[in-house]
């Protein structure tokens, strides 16, 4: 017997690009099918994005609520003005705000965890004396991310963790794209100071 996978319906790590697929018409009798497709395309990465922000359990609730909210509000979605991804992440990010305290606590906990471990890894291995590992750098930026305004944090993490473009972030949050770019530039500049090594090598 031959095993056959129809490639058109098999998704890998990255969903196949669909020129019109990300701006679907969410009306008509096939709307549930369209939402099923959107769920398959976005639910898992959205969960991970939310889990990194507010924890895995809350993320499950938020994914569920996001899609139910989207379905209820489908009449407000205009494919001419925004991609479905931006619309969905906008809903998810908005819903996640109720967990902002939890998110900040989580970021602060990351910092505390860092303080219990030595930053200097050179003691273990001379070859890494000049290196700074990613976890150490992550702990350095965590308090600064906790201190950001909600709007700045949304812009940063929608870009970095959800992989949205600046235009998509603008659509998701309902703010001008110029604002997104300037926020992102400012926030990244602030954070980059924390990840720039004191000495030893040039930064970009």
């Amino acid at each position: 017997m031959t095993v056959t996978d129809t490639t058109e319906s098999v998704a890998g790590d990255r969903p196949p690009p669909e020129p019109m697929g990300d701006r679907p018409q969410l009306t008509g009798p096939a709307v549930a099918d369209e939402f099923a497709r959107l769920f398959d395309q976005h639910a898992a990465p959205m969960h991970r994005y939310l889990a990194r922000r507010v924890g895995a359990e809350q993320a499950h609730d938020l994914v569920s609520e996001t899609f139910l909210t989207a379905f209820r509000q489908r009449d407000t979605y205009d494919p001419a003005t925004a991609a479905a991804k931006a619309w969905l992440y906008g809903i998810a990010t908005n819903l996640a705000r109720r967990y902002v305290r939890q998110e900040v606590r989580g970021l602060r906990a990351t910092v505390r965890a860092g303080r219990r471990e030595p930053d200097d890894l050179a003691a273990h291995d001379g070859r890494v004396a000049e290196r700074v590992d990613a976890q150490t750098l992550a702990r350095r930026i965590a308090p600064a991310i906790a201190d950001l305004s909600e709007g700045d944090r949304d812009v940063l993490l929608l870009t970095s963790w959800a992989g949205l473009s600046t235009v998509e972030v603008a659509d998701a949050l309902g703010i001008p794209v110029g604002t997104v770019r300037s926020r992102l530039h400012r926030v990244r500049r602030q954070l980059r100071i924390l990840t720039t090594p004191e000495e030893g090598y040039d930064h970009d």
């Binding site: 990194r52 990351t110 930026i141 963790w161």
Partner: peptide, 11 residues
């Protein structure tokens, strides 16, 4: 470094 740090945070 910043992108790497962001990637590692809560990864």
């Amino acid at each position: 470094d910043l992108d790497r740090a962001l990637s590692a945070l809560h990864a």
